[in-house]
Simulated scan of single mutants.
Amino acid sequence: MIQPVPLVEIVRSGLREGLHHGSVVVIDPDGAPLLSLGDATAPMYPRSSLKPAQAAGMLRCGLELPSADLALAASSHSGEEGHLRRVGELLERFSLTEDDLGCPPDLPLGEAARLGASVPRRITMNCSGKHAAMLATCVINGWPTADYLNPKHPLQVAIAETAVELAGEPLANTAVDGCGAPLFAISLSGLARVFQGLVSTPVGDAMREHPWLVAGTDREDTRLMAAVPGLISKIGAEGVFAFALPDGRAAAIKIADGASRARLPIAAGILAQLGITGLEDLAEEPVLGGGHPVGSIRLIPGALA
């Protein structure tokens, strides 16, 4: 189990009301640790932070996609109109339909898109881009699509091998993610190495070129990639966040209680220590009361020392 340390404070109406604990690892271009807080070696589930590695595994299986579609394959999209149109076109290109998607029906992840949705659908589920790309990979290889989420399916075997190679460590466990795809357990250090290995690849290029497709309007990945040229990042459920700079420095974050609101201030704090300036807008997340800001979430001074 990861042993967390206090990282950010929650201040409401001028008074501290609590702390978020977590673990952080930052590595240099050679993979050596620049910073390690908590336990960077304990197995954890990166959740959707591993989607770029899954996309890389599909490329190794022969999948060829335009850069925008590749970004969507690595996404947890908001379900906005542009996301859904692109997923639909990807499916149609390979003679597939929404019914072929193995992800469960869900409402869009983005708030505005969710308010405009009438019923849960498979295509509006935030992982539908990844699933559409997985199905396309099966089609081009002549693999069956009905059981493409089975961990023993050749597609998933190839993706697991890619994850192991990028992480530089064996998988600690394979479970099932919320979207139904295999879910791999690796360490925070392994996750940082994954992003280090992807930053100068076609997947990294696609994410940099199309940050909105990776996430959506006002989402964390979109905001961070827009603010730091050349950076790639990907959130994961349960308080996971990973990113890499174009020079190969990379970081991975896990919030102990699974909350998402502490991720961006921690990421901004890490980047500030790495010499990236101009991230003041990302360094604090508002705390709302009655729909209005009544406080903020911010890095504890010295937390990353």
Results as ranks from 00 to 15, higher is better:
residue 140 I to V: 14
residue 141 N to Q: 11
residue 109 L to E: 12
residue 151 P to I: 02
residue 101 L to W: 14
residue 89 E to S: 13
residue 146 A to F: 09
residue 133 A to C: 07
residue 97 T to R: 14
residue 157 V to T: 09
residue 113 A to H: 01
residue 89 E to P: 01
residue 120 P to E: 04
residue 133 A to W: 11
residue 134 M to K: 07
residue 117 A to L: 00
residue 179 C to G: 12
residue 114 R to V: 00
residue 173 N to G: 12
residue 112 A to I: 12
residue 75 S to D: 05
residue 97 T to A: 08
residue 161 E to H: 06
residue 167 A to Y: 09
residue 82 G to V: 13
residue 143 W to V: 02
residue 107 L to C: 05
residue 87 V to H: 09
residue 147 D to K: 05
residue 95 S to E: 11
residue 88 G to H: 09
residue 173 N to S: 15
residue 124 T to S: 13
residue 84 L to T: 07
residue 85 R to W: 14
residue 100 D to P: 13
residue 91 L to S: 11
residue 118 S to N: 00
residue 148 Y to P: 02
residue 165 E to M: 13
residue 113 A to G: 06
residue 164 V to A: 03
residue 181 A to G: 08
residue 90 L to S: 10
residue 170 P to T: 12
residue 109 L to I: 02
residue 153 H to F: 05
residue 95 S to W: 04
residue 126 N to M: 03
residue 79 G to W: 06
residue 125 M to I: 07
residue 136 A to H: 09
residue 105 P to G: 04
residue 96 L to K: 12
residue 156 Q to L: 07
residue 93 R to N: 01
residue 157 V to F: 01
residue 116 G to F: 00
residue 139 V to W: 13
residue 175 A to T: 14
residue 154 P to S: 01
residue 93 R to P: 00
residue 117 A to T: 01
residue 132 A to R: 02
residue 102 G to Y: 05
residue 99 D to V: 07
residue 79 G to I: 07
residue 149 L to A: 09
residue 87 V to I: 15
residue 123 I to R: 08
residue 95 S to Q: 10
residue 146 A to H: 13
residue 160 A to C: 04
residue 137 T to K: 04
residue 85 R to P: 10
residue 160 A to L: 05
residue 90 L to V: 11
residue 105 P to T: 05
residue 96 L to F: 08
residue 116 G to C: 02
residue 130 K to C: 00
residue 133 A to H: 08
residue 113 A to S: 08
residue 110 G to D: 06
residue 86 R to W: 11
residue 79 G to P: 13
residue 144 P to E: 08
residue 139 V to T: 12
residue 180 G to M: 06
residue 112 A to R: 14
residue 154 P to G: 02
residue 140 I to A: 02
residue 181 A to P: 00
residue 157 V to R: 13
residue 90 L to W: 10
residue 114 R to T: 00
residue 140 I to F: 06
residue 142 G to D: 07
residue 95 S to M: 00
residue 91 L to E: 08
residue 118 S to G: 00
residue 153 H to G: 08
residue 162 T to H: 05
residue 128 S to M: 07
residue 148 Y to W: 10
residue 112 A to W: 09
residue 142 G to E: 06
residue 124 T to I: 00
residue 172 A to D: 14
residue 128 S to P: 07
residue 117 A to S: 08
residue 175 A to E: 07
residue 112 A to G: 02
residue 123 I to F: 03
residue 123 I to P: 01
residue 128 S to F: 12
residue 177 D to I: 12
residue 174 T to N: 02
residue 112 A to F: 08
residue 132 A to E: 01
residue 125 M to K: 10
residue 105 P to F: 05
residue 77 H to E: 04
residue 155 L to F: 06
residue 73 A to G: 11
residue 178 G to W: 15
residue 146 A to V: 10
residue 138 C to I: 10
residue 85 R to Q: 15
